[in-house]
Design a protein around this nucleic acid. Structure first.
Lengths: 128, 128
DNA sequence: TTGACAATACTACCGTGGTAGTATTAACTC
DNA sequence: GAGTTAATACTACCACGGTAGTATTGTCAA
């Protein structure tokens, strides 16, 4: 179960996982209208995707009546870390500073955000 | 040319791009042995991949004799930023602090690295 | 000039993300 | 009980990353 490739989730899969992470549990219908995209996806598309994701170990479900109630089977933390590390290693040779530098020069970052970053780094320096 | 989907490059493609970025130009043979993977890829695999990548606008080539000399057609910066931003938006709701926090708790980060991060943030605070 | 080599071109195949239609079935309503 | 509804199951298809074999052809050496 731990051996799921976590750094190659597609866009739709990620959006679905986000719904599951946010809600804890969700039926196909819940997920379907939670992702209120412009050209609305077909209901069956979401259902199929969820089935595939369960087969891949990303989600799981229980049954309520004859409705499937899905939940995430991998923690958001794990996926986030995996994908972030993948990008970090593959594109920035593992240098967090380089990555942050690129991100800082291409986005508006609020003062709060910067302060929080400072705090994190200071904290990390204290505990090696 | 600007409209290449840059946030969905596969692993092999990224490794190849890395070679092109590092060297500026490279023949298929150059790329082939630059990626010295454990079960060595077939030469034709690399050639095919490069052709596909050129079709996708990721690389380009000139001819020297009858040898193709490839080069990257997109800047490392752009790809790096794109992939990083994608992960940032999709998994950390755009919060750089959140992403960095996750990365800090799961990797060894050198003191130099932390100092550099601090410097970056301080600099950014000075120039809004 | 013939053969060997080295290059690209072409073709094929698998896995999987993404998309959705059709089929089946369970359940509710009248 | 018959019909409608709402759920999943099944199937199919495209795009594309990844992998590689076979075919073709240009070039150089003997």
């Amino acid at each position: 179960m731990a051996n799921v490739r976590l750094h190659r989730l597609g866009d739709l899969q990620l959006r679905i996982m986000q719904v599951l992470w946010d809600r804890g549990e969700a039926s196909v219908a819940d997920v379907h209208d939670a992702l209120g995209a412009r050209p609305k996806l077909a209901y069956t598309t979401v259902a199929t995707m969820l089935r595939k994701m369960e087969a891949r170990g990303l989600a799981a479900h229980r049954t309520e009546g004859r409705t499937f109630i899905y939940r995430a089977a991998v923690a958001e933390e794990r996926v986030g870390r995996n994908m972030a590390e993948h990008v970090l290693d593959r594109l920035f040779q593992g240098s967090l500073a380089t990555m942050v530098s690129h991100l800082l020069t291409a986005r508006e970052v609020s003062g709060d955000e910067l302060a929080e970053l400072e705090r994190l780094i200071a904290e990390r320096k204290r505990t090696p």
